[in-house]
Simulated scan of single mutants.
Amino acid sequence: MGSHKWTSRLIPAMLLLVGGGATAQSYRVVDVATLAQGNAAVVRGPNLKNEGVGGGTLAGTGSSAGGQRKGLLLAAGAVRQISGLGNTDDTIVYGQNDGGALVGSSNTESALRAFAGTQAGAVRELPPLSGDTSSAAYGVDKQGQAVGFSSGAGGQRAVVWDASGTPSALPGVPNVSGTRAIDINERGDVVGSASTAAGQRPILWPKGQPPTELPLLAGDATGEASAINARGDVAGYSANASGTRRATVWRSNAAAVDLGTLAGGDFSQAFGINGSGDIVGTSNSRAVLWPGSGGIQDLNSLIPPSAFRLTKAVGINNNGTIIATGHDIPAGHGAEHAHEDEHDLPVRVFLLIRSGGGP
């Protein structure tokens, strides 16, 4: 396992007043890492230790743009590379629990394979179901159970691996061509998606019960469930026939609720939810927070004026710490204007730690 040290930069907190004289939550920003452009970066987390995970090429390590992705442990003051399985050329860590157990996938010479590991460097394969050839793991609970998919000639199936690494197929969903599990909560409820002739649909597998197709927003055609908290609230998106996504929450398996967008746009997507029901995601190319109490907040407005723009908030823990990604604002482009080539810029990774205000 390689290591790469970073000096974290702490940005002082700033308090903002919102309507009615109430004080909005403000955040201290920790600059965690910069990932090179030219290769899709993955960032997930954080756990209760404020550690994120992901995959990408660290800027300044001598790797060329588009080089091999390495698994990453993203912590304030230190970013470490996670080796993944041996003889692989692309590793991504997708999930981590509060104890530091890691799960993800590595590309071998013949197939994609799931793995489980530790921050200390131990890695073992999470095998696919009998007869399948590929697998990937996306989430892990506090007991070490992992969820993801197994695939082969019969298609893709959502699976759960027990703490020993033995896979079991999650109950099948009628009239679908494939399923994928993405997250698991403390009581063993699992969420993900199913592929149907009409498009992708959000799925909930309650612990020990048959799967449930979560409803889409009225008139929508596709969707995905991306995260679930301990009480069973689910966050993700619902999209219309043209593919425009709206961040959606399903609270305790109730009807789909549109979380809305920032003013001036029609796109949003939720990526993470904590035990208090706070949800994070993106809207109109800006990182946002939907507090459990309601409303939507542009996270760029809850930090001091900066030379970067937060574009996605990808996770939030039960202490309210958020992990977000963004880009430097190119010269000549104001902070209020999206840049057409942002996807070609290095990806900045930040931790946002509560520093004042809020309920």
Rank of each mutant, 00 (worst) to 15 (best):
G2H: 15
L10G: 11
V18L: 00
G19R: 09
A22P: 04
Q25H: 01
R28C: 13
V30H: 15
A33V: 08
Q37G: 13
N39S: 05
P46D: 01
N47V: 01
V53N: 05
G56I: 01
G60V: 05
A65N: 06
G67Y: 04
L72C: 08
A75Q: 15
A76T: 04
A78W: 08
A78V: 11
Q81M: 14
I82N: 03
G86M: 11
G99V: 09
G104S: 08
T118L: 02
G121I: 11
A122H: 15
A122W: 14
Q156D: 11
V160H: 02
A163R: 01
A163W: 01
A163F: 01
G165C: 09
A169E: 07
A181F: 14
I182F: 12
D189M: 08
T196K: 03
T196D: 01
Q200S: 13
P202F: 09
W205Q: 06
Q209K: 15
L217P: 03
A221L: 14
G236Y: 12
Y237I: 08
S238K: 14
V249I: 09
A256K: 12
T261N: 14
T261C: 14
G265I: 06
D266W: 10
A270N: 10
N274W: 13
S276M: 08
S276I: 01
G281C: 10
W290G: 01
D298Q: 02
L299M: 01
L302G: 00
I316N: 12
N317Q: 04
I322R: 06
I323F: 05
A331P: 10
G332S: 13
H333N: 15
D341E: 03
E342I: 02
R348P: 07
V349S: 09
G356D: 05
G358C: 03
